[in-house]
Design a protein around this nucleic acid. Structure first.
Lengths: 212, 212
DNA sequence: CGGAAACTTGAGTTACGTCAACTACCGTGG
DNA sequence: CCACGGTAGTTGACGTAACTCAAGTTTCCG
């Protein structure tokens, strides 16, 4: 059972390449993204402990997206070719993998709704409180300190489908309303319920999730 | 093995309700969508023969999205509670289900990139040629006739995250360039490779897909 | 034949984008 | 210690893609 540790900014997966391994996130933050030929980037989702990397995309072929580490990350490496035997010998694990894939879809659905139909302000509020709630439920953020999401405004912009400048102005308004505080390279959530309200969103009730 | 036949416009799944069944699409077109409280709608993806309905979202709880039939659809009904025993007894099928989930994710990734980062024109071209290529590879569209995608412009608008008016003007330009023809309640693809070019997109090479 | 749904089109508005300049905050090396 | 260069964040002026409103026309269907 190999482990892989990567520094912030490392490319873990590159679109177009073949990847014979799957990973599970053991610790740290990362994100998945795609870019167009002229450099426009869209961040698809964020990776937190418990998430699976590499399932997305046609299981055996080239990766359809890239993955980059946002903080130092620890990954658990798993050989793709062992997947079929795992399915044969551990149906419960197989079921859990499907559960994870379904949850990822569910998050992507919500992001798509957000980018397609919410205003800049709603989108920003949604994203921050979404990440906050994920961080809380994965134990990365505790009541006592370490309340900060390790992002730059460029990441936020590329997640929301907005320009950097407009993202900055939007975040400023959220900060001026006391909902967040923006630090260098990070965002602190000051008023989660205010953000939920601004986003008109509630996180779905999670059924007990598998460990993997 | 129960079958379900529904007419165009029928709500197959409603967000927020519990659904003890999964479905497989045997024939026809449908789509998945979410709506905000004030009625803004985002279409998430389209459903064609071979697609699974209801896997998305936390497997056992309330549905996180709605599903509506675009044409007459035939569905194959499957009880959710039988899923675990299927995983135990048919690991290959289980693997195929995961494959389908991964492919759905892959499509959502591309849609998110599209809505977040592509221009209106690119988005429209992408959507139409995406649907066209899916229709072709599922055998719904043949060289000899029946080249038409069963959509209204409102569907296109709600998929692309655009207003109806702007969608209309964008489709008009595509039609004027000879790439498509818009009929009432439908779109005919005239020049697929021109659309691919306008969208700056190529469909990913599919590994052989399972039947299910 | 009438009414509803789908599609069009033009005019005026706005949310968001682009450009450009500036500040603040590092970490590095002289 | 300061000079520096790079990254991140901030702000204002201006431009434009896309939105809203409003009034058509066309097509379908009962």
């Amino acid at each position: 059972m190999a482990e892989l540790v990567v520094d912030p900014g490392t490319s873990v997966v590159v679109e177009g390449e073949r990847h014979p391994q799957l990973y599970t996130v053991l610790s740290g933050w990362g994100f998945r993204y795609k870019i167009l030929e002229d450099g426009r980037r869209q961040i698809l989702n964020y990776l937190l402990p418990g998430d699976l990397i590499g399932l997305q995309g046609n299981i055996m072929l080239e990766m359809q997206h890239s993955v980059e580490a946002l903080t130092k990350m620890t990954l658990c490496v798993f050989e793709r070719e062992r997947l079929m035997t795992l399915y044969q010998n551990h149906p419960t694990l197989a079921y859990d993998i499907t559960w994870l894939a379904a949850r990822e879809e569910s998050m992507l659905d919500e992001h798509l709704l957000s980018v397609g139909r919410r205003s800049a302000m709603e989108r920003a509020a949604y994203l921050l409180v979404f990440l906050y709630s994920r961080a809380v439920s994965s134990g990365m953020i505790t009541r006592a300190g370490n309340q900060t999401l390790p992002l730059t405004q460029q990441h936020v912009a590329d997640t929301l489908g907005l320009s950097l400048v407009h993202t900055n102005k939007t975040l400023r308004k959220l900060a001026d309303s006391g909902l967040i505080r923006w630090l260098d390279r990070g965002c602190e959530i000051m008023d989660a319920s205010g953000l939920y309200q601004a986003a008109q969103w509630r996180p779905p009730a999670e059924s007990k999730r598998p460990f993997i």
